[in-house]
Amino acid sequence: MGARSGSVLVVGVGGQGVVLSSAVAADAARRCGFDVKQSEVHGMSQRGGVVTSHLRYGDAVHSPLIAAGEADAIVALEWNEALRALPALRPGGTLIVSVERILPPSAFLDRLHGALRYPPIAVDLLRGTVPDVRACDATAVAARAGDRRAMNTVLLGVLSRVMPFSETAWDDAIVANVPPKALGANRAAFAAGRALQADDARRALARLARSDEGGDARRAAASLEIVDAWCKGEMCGICVRSCPEYCLGFDAEATAVRVTRADACTACGLCELLCPDFAIVVHPAVPA
C-alpha cells in the first residue's frame, strides 16, 4: 500500500461504541475518496468481551484486517484493551487511549487478598516504547461536553488530528452514522476531543490509583470451628448455600458441615452469621 493509505485499529469492550467509532472513521475515509475496508468481530464478543474493529483505507484495499505491527493508529476505548492491541501498532504509530478501566469479573478472582488482576495504568511508562501516546479521560471529557456515553467520539476527535480526513468529512460521517438524538452530544464530544491537549488524564489516573488500594495482602485463610453435635447438616444447609467461596460441604452422612476448600475462605463470616444452630465460628487468621 502506498503513502496514500493507512490503518486504524479501534479497540474496546462490548457496549463502548467501538463499532460506531470505526464506522464513522470508515465513512470519513470514504467521503475523502478512499477505498475502505472495515472489519470487526460480532457474536459472543459483544457480551462484555473484547471488540476490535480494523479500518483500512487507501487507493485500493484488499485485506480487511491489519497485520501485526502495521496499524498507523490504535484508538483504545479502554486501558487493558490498549495494551492487548499494542502489537498491532507500527513503530512510530500513535496510540490514542482513554484511561478507562472496565474490569471483567475475572479481575476479582483473588478475593482473599483483594489483589486486582488488571494491568496498572502507567501512561508514562508506556511512552518509553510508544513515543506518541495520547491519553485522556475520554469519559470525563464527554461528560463535560454533554453526554458521558459519547466518550468514543472524543477519541475520534483526537484521532482526527492524525488522520488525513477533512473536518467536513468527519462531521458528515458523524451526522450520517450517529442517531439524531445523540448527534449534538457527539459533535460536541468530537470537538472537545479534537481540541484536547495531551495529558488530560491526570485526575482520572489519581482516582484509579486510589481505588487500586487493595486488601490486606498478608491475610492467610481463616479457620472454621464447627461443632458437629450442634450442626443439623444437610437438612439445614444454610451455610453451604451462603458461602461465597463454596468452601463448605457435608460429611459422609450429611449430618454435619465440613470445610471443603479451606484455603479459599476469606473469613467473611456469613456462615457463622447465618447458622441458626451456633455450630460455626469463624476465626480470621491474624495478619502475620
Binding site: 443439623k232 437438612m235 444454610i238 452469621l273 447465618l274 447458622c275 441458626p276 444452630d277 451456633f278
Partner: peptide
C-alpha cells in the same frame, strides 16, 4: 442445653444470635 430443639433450617437461632 445445645443442640437446640429447633428444626434444621429454622431461622429462630439466627435471631437469638
Amino acid at each position: 442445653m445445645l443442640p437446640h430443639i429447633l428444626c434444621p433450617g429454622c431461622g429462630h437461632g439466627i435471631v437469638l444470635k
